[in-house]
Simulated scan of single mutants.
Amino acid sequence: MVLRTHDLRKKLREHLKSSALILIALAAVLGSSAAATDWAGALYILTGVEDSAIVLDGSQDIPDLSDRMMYVASGSKGYDIRLDSKLDVTIRHDGQALTTVSKKESISALLTRMGITLSPLEMVAVDLSDQELVLTVAEDVTYYDEVREAEAFNTVRVANPDLPKGTERVVQEGMDGIRTSIYEVVWSNGKCISRQFVEELDSTAVDQIVEYGTAVSSVGRTDRIASISKNADGSGTLIFESGATLNFSQAKSMTATAYTAGHGGADYTTATGTFVEVGTVAVDKNVIPLGTRMYIVTNDGIVYGMSVARDTGVKGNKVDLYYNSYRECIEFGRRSCTVYILE
């Protein structure tokens, strides 16, 4: 027989919070000979009264059920549960439901008083989830055990493109808590034959959140953009395959050409007085101010990469990219590109 006070999927959480299910596996001695004694000679398993099931086999302390008007007692023949008087009791057995009011008596004595003699294979489950006491007598019993265990907090690391690479900060302190798990437990013939995990309800542990910086001032020429995060104002972040990030304030669609020293009147020094090198870009200073740091990618996939506006000689929405050889300039030709203005 499977005992389910509520549908498992819809109401298991609510049921387990208020339930105090007491499973009593009674031995065959609870027949005519047991009726003459106060002791059931039984194995009692209590669930819902502690963080996990309690087996009354002498290995644990006797629990206090006085708030339920019940008392666990022990004697030479084992354990039994004594009831206070005037408790409403329903007994379910062989498809019938009997009702009575308890006297100051043990559960085994109550069953005997109601004319119920257990077979060697039957067990008694005592459900305290409602105001009345419900006893179910059956050969097979399934119940759900709520187990609470201490759980250490986890540390979650989150990339922050606004923090310099190599730095980190704790934005939420972690806190240890309690994890609550549900197990389905099956008893048959007075023995536990199965205990299986059902689900984890919740945990009170609080994750520690650590932000680590990924922002860099430049990336290597072999590093490639893995993704781009854009903001509504046109700014955003370039996220590279290495994990490094570059923040940009603007992405400009422009036309790119190429030049090299000694051709077309180009000199070996720039308008700002530096020597030309790969990464030097000639701009219209009214469009892109001199000294601006950029990351440039053509629309057909050529990565020019990190660059600085150091030279002049072009007009309008154009950039002229420095290459070391005239052949590279010819191969590059004229292409559409995106110029990311770096912060």
Rank of each mutant, 00 (worst) to 15 (best):
H93T: 05
R224P: 02
D61M: 08
K103L: 11
L83N: 07
V89K: 08
Y143W: 10
D202E: 15
L111P: 01
G291W: 10
I302P: 00
E132Y: 15
N231T: 01
N154H: 13
V303Q: 13
Y295G: 02
S52N: 11
L26F: 05
H15M: 04
S52R: 14
L342G: 05
T37M: 07
R293E: 13
S129C: 06
S106R: 10
L43E: 10
S74C: 02
A138F: 00
A40R: 04
K10I: 00
A309E: 05
W187S: 03
D61I: 00
S106N: 10
A256Q: 09
G265M: 03
I296A: 02
A261T: 09
K86F: 14
T180L: 05
P289W: 09
R13G: 00
G305W: 09
L87P: 00
Y212R: 03
S307H: 02
K104T: 11
R68K: 15
N317Q: 13
D311A: 11
I62V: 14
S242R: 02
D88N: 14
V137A: 07
Y326Q: 12
G273Q: 08
T117R: 10
D64P: 00
L111F: 03
A271D: 08
Q96D: 11
V314Q: 07
V339Q: 07
I182M: 04
T222D: 15
H6K: 12
L26H: 08
V278I: 09
M69A: 12
M70S: 01
I209Y: 10
I107Y: 03
G313Q: 07
V198E: 14
A138D: 15
K165M: 09
R310D: 04
S59E: 12
V156L: 12
M1S: 08
T280N: 04
V287A: 13
T47Q: 14
R335N: 02
F275R: 15
S59F: 01
V101Y: 14
L121Y: 09
S66W: 02
L21V: 10
Y71K: 15
E105V: 00
Y268L: 02
V308M: 13
D61W: 02
L3Q: 06
M175H: 10
G75M: 04
V55E: 13
G220E: 05
M114I: 00
G333M: 06
D145N: 15
I178L: 09
V198D: 12
T257K: 05
T47E: 12
E139R: 13
I193D: 06
V101S: 15
H263N: 05
V147F: 08
T136S: 15
E50Q: 09
D130S: 15
T222L: 06
R148P: 06
G273H: 10
V170H: 12
Y304I: 11
R221S: 12
A256F: 08
A261P: 05
G279R: 11
R195K: 15
E184F: 07
G220K: 13
A282S: 09
I228Y: 12
G41T: 04
M175L: 12
F275S: 14
Y44W: 12
